[in-house]
Amino acid sequence: MKTNSLLFCLYCGLFFNPHVFATGNYQEPSEFIQEVFSGDAPRVSKIWIKKDLKVKIREIMEHDLGVLRLKYWKKNDRTAWILKEIGKVRPITAGIVINHNKIERIKVLAFRESRGWEVRYPFFTDQFSDVALKENKQLDRHIDGISGATLSVRAMTKMARLALFLHQEIERMANGKPGQIEQR
């Protein structure tokens, strides 16, 4: 009887402790943006996915995004992005901050897959710090995978590459090629 009670307590502890009862939405995108810019977030900007950009995005993501434009927040040399990509079945939402063409921070804001959730932990996301994009649109550093989470890792890597690429596009357009950026 005593053993049963102990097991019951263990069961309850396992299923209802604050960590394991964490929701799949770990942070609202708006909160992430405010946090990134220390409560003084710039106005949202949008980059239209025109024909040329669409082709380049497809090279990175291996599919079209299915949106007309992407939102971002820019202040000085930093841009922040909220991106989504499907891991195996469901989309993963990530917040990514680029500073001087390098990843300053990447965070999983929502994870909806039934496996591969390890990608949300710092032991994985810390690998992206200071990673930049090479000319071939690949990351300049290898990202170690997670066994059983290959597709989630791949989705995170793609989003990191996309954010770095779009940041470069924003910088490039700001320095001479107008027309695709819309300030709101």
Partner: peptide
Amino acid sequence: LRYTGMPGLE
């Protein structure tokens, strides 16, 4: 029981 708490490791 499986530990995957370090990138690249299972």
